[in-house]
Design a protein around this nucleic acid. Structure first.
Lengths: 251, 251
DNA sequence: CACTATTTGTCCGTATGTATG
DNA sequence: TCATACATACGGACAAATAGT
């Protein structure tokens, strides 16, 4: 019983934050269910117990549970309690860290890519500056989602130079990114990547079926050609409940 | 002028989110200032302009600016506008990705460690399970903060087996973690690490002087000895505005 | 068959915060 | 600045379903 409360982690709520208390409690429970710490069928502590551990009123704890019930993540029964109810429980996807570049593209035969958008358009000023193009040059913009077993876990946004109108959504979905560069004779000489974290925007949240503002793992990738010119810019956001970079070192 | 709005990124506010609108706008501006996209002295767009771009009322945009002024991040002058005012602007710290293990400890001579807590105590059930210890065995628990030029950017929480009472806060602050393992004859044969993202808890937020709930880069590290027994567990949280993992590949 | 403890469901009144025009 | 509407949070009270004694 008390073990379940420990499984919720050391997370606590912050009364001084503008984010509503019930929403903070909701997020803690939601994430615990989403990443599998509270598996299907688990009995969640009572409203009273939750209120005590998070130091909020019963109404606030109750609101959090009601919202979870509304999202079909738990079922509530008067006199019995609240129980976890979630259909799929996909394994978290582990990408090896040491071979980051290639792993991202050959990430697995069992993941699928959906292209949300593909267009040739003039980017905004900050992106134009990075590519050193004028305000008339069009670049290839894409927005894609990667899923495993039908569950989306990654969102990709990219600007690229060098593709022409023969590029189609189908090609983007069928071929790995590196393959496409070769097909269009785009030379990649140097790659810069950095890992960071950011909150999910409403657009990304909708595409990945998560709440907006949820902390996401962000990969920024800049690919340059032999002359040091930027040819590809990628921003990838991963749901940390379903995906993490993983590395094993044997000393 | 419009360029500045573009620098705020593609982030937008979500009216359907329980998080107050003014707080969402505040966060976008705050992060843009904190990570240096809006450098010192920059004139922030007017309340009217902000209200238009984020599609909120002028009062809401105004509230966001007022909160920033309260936190001393901007200065407001009637008839002139709102201007960025932030004292320190440390470079973001880049940790190389390919040599993750060692880089973390020798992260730089110019970073300092402060030990918030060091104690020998019996961990909770989930941690006991990982270490396979009973409910009477004490482990070494530490909580530390890493800073650069006086600005904290990383928070570390660890459980370790094998240290004895001769370990002091001073030793923890002076020596790198790998050195300490050698000093106490603790064998590390295998290391498992994973990168993820999570929102900052109120405790971490206070230690790193950021807002609670802010998306953070999380590194989990498990160190095992020759028998496969867990000897060290580390959870590191990094402020993405000040720290990112970085990798450069030349093909 | 009570009796009791637990848990969710519903209601009240009130104070404060948020967002708009 | 004001007036207004709505959301959040609290404490308290009571009803209804469930399970065990």
């Amino acid at each position: 019983m008390n073990d379940i409360l420990e499984k919720l982690g050391t997370r606590s709520v912050d009364p001084s934050s503008p984010t509503p208390l019930y929403f903070q409690v909701y997020n803690i429970l939601h994430d615990s269910i989403a990443d599998g710490r509270l598996p299907n069928g688990t009995k969640i502590p009572s409203e009273k117990a939750l209120a005590a551990t998070f130091d909020v009123s019963r109404i606030t704890a109750r609101r959090a549970l009601d919202e979870l019930a509304l999202k079909r993540m738990v079922v509530r029964h008067r006199g019995k309690g609240t129980f976890v109810e979630h259909r799929y429980q996909p394994d978290t996807i582990h990408a090896p860290l040491d071979d980051l570049m290639s792993s991202l593209d050959h990430m697995g035969r069992d993941t699928t890519v959906t292209v949300l958008e593909m267009a040739f358009r003039v980017p905004g000023a900050p992106v134009r500056e990075l590519f050193s193009t004028d305000d008339k040059t069009r670049l290839c913009y894409t927005q894609r989602v990667r899923s495993k077993e039908g569950v989306p876990f990654g969102h990709y946004q990219s600007w690229s130079r060098g593709f022409d109108r023969t590029l189609t959504k189908r090609k983007l979905e069928k071929h790995a990114r590196l393959e496409l560069f070769r097909m269009y004779d785009i030379e990649i000489a140097r790659v810069e990547q950095s890992l960071s974290a950011v909150g999910a925007s409403p657009e990304v949240a909708e595409a990945l079926n998560i709440r907006s503002g949820k902390p996401m793992l962000r990969l920024n990738r800049f690919s340059y050609d032999g002359e040091g010119q930027l040819v590809d810019q990628l921003i990838a956001l991963y749901n940390p409940d379903l995906f993490r970079y993983h590395m094993e070192t044997v000393l």
